[in-house]
Design a protein around this nucleic acid. Structure first.
Lengths: 225, 225
DNA sequence: TTTGCAAAGATAGTGTTACTATCTTTTAAA
DNA sequence: TTTAAAAGATAGTAACACTATCTTTGCAAA
């Protein structure tokens, strides 16, 4: 079975749809590699164009600037993750088990999904951990939000918020708890690997520990008092 | 009583100590205002020098680059906050009440502290919410950490982690819970004001709600099962 | 009072970044 | 076969991120 997964992206994210051409796909592929290698601050369209073997102007025909490209990559990631969440919890009847599955998805290294040809999800996951919040932590956040650029993130958060409510309909902060576990799945991972004294996982640096911490956090919070 | 609070900063944070001269103090004062006004990305030493009425080269005599200045500001903020935490929980005997006091300090707008003459803590607090994580979310994080640039953040986290243990000695994740509430105090605030659908506080946009959410999160987690 | 030295000011210069413009060539569909 | 869109080639500009050097100022020790 050879299935290809295509995620429909908000058209305001790009000037020309990168999924519609070879050059566009190369931009996605190589930008993921370059950002992962040097970090978002050191990433420039010039370097990207050299990497691809095209010109700077060529990249600008697809993306307004590198920040838009970062928003594109994060939006793609959150959309893909929401799909994973939906797909992988599909047959799970029990609400608690379903939520546990989601926590594991959020906090565990993803394997490259062969359904998407020019995106390496495991590298993209690493990028989102370090650079993801920079997509919205800007002065432009409200304008960008009006253009619905963060919709995939908000959608995922809503889905998880609803799963929390299914476990515990009386819980008062489902959305805040959802955004907390999404962000903390990443932050605790970053801390574990870079500033381990901010976590309790410094010894073995094991993602499974993060999962246990988040499960403990979530299920303590939502269980009836 | 006229007390001045002076925070001893790590010498690797600057080239020349900004607290030792008028120009240095102006750099701190005006950089806080400028970053708050335009955001860290749009902030440049050129603009800062014009604002102050000095030259770009003058700023570079104090700070290696704008990222170092950001780390300086965040380090200052965490040091100041640790002092506030220590000071304001000083007479509280009950561990639970003490932790509640800390959560309130983390999640509530700070008033300008008149003990520090050239730092406006309430504006700095806003900056830390939006820009704070950018200090460590870089490729340089490990090197910077080796130079102990993040010590104030880690110290605060350790203090709060210990307070958690005082409430609940058997709790398994005191440090991760501490870093979680520090970050979430800021993120939920940012979300509430900019991406409200990621929170449950969209209606009244009240910081007191964030405090209640965090208290619920912490005390559900640490209470004995 | 003079000397000396460090901080600050003034000015200039360089390579890079973040674009924009325009012109030509290639490609692929009508 | 035409033709229009995409891509390539090239150039240019303003701002940014520095570095260097020289002059002036203020102030403290000799």
């Amino acid at each position: 079975m050879d299935i290809q997964l295509k995620i429909k992206m908000n058209e305001k994210l790009f000037i020309r749809d990168p999924e519609q051409s070879e050059l566009g796909k190369k931009i996605i592929l190589h930008s993921i590699q370059l950002i992962h290698k040097n970090g978002f601050e050191a990433f420039t369209f010039k370097k990207l164009s050299v990497d691809i073997g095209t010109t700077e102007a060529g990249i600008y025909r697809y993306f307004e600037n590198k920040h838009r490209l970062l928003i594109y990559l994060t939006a793609w990631y959150w959309s893909w993750l929401e799909y994973q969440v939906t797909f992988q919890t599909n047959n799970i009847k029990d609400a608690v088990l379903r939520l546990k599955r989601v926590i594991k998805l959020l906090a565990t290294t993803v394997e490259d999904d062969s359904c998407t040809l020019y995106v390496d999800e495991s590298i993209l996951h690493q990028i989102i951990i370090t650079e993801g919040t920079k997509a919205y932590l800007t002065k432009r956040v409200s304008e960008d939000n009006k253009d619905h650029l963060f919709k995939p993130y908000k959608d995922l958060c809503a889905v998880i918020g609803n799963m929390i409510l299914e476990c515990s309909p009386q819980y008062k902060y489902p959305k805040s708890l959802a955004s907390t576990i999404i962000e903390m799945a990443h932050f605790q991972n970053f801390f574990m690997n870079n500033l381990p004294s901010l976590t309790d996982f410094g010894q073995d640096k094991n993602e499974a520990e993060i999962v246990r911490f988040l499960e403990d956090l979530v299920f303590s919070s939502i269980k009836k008092a």
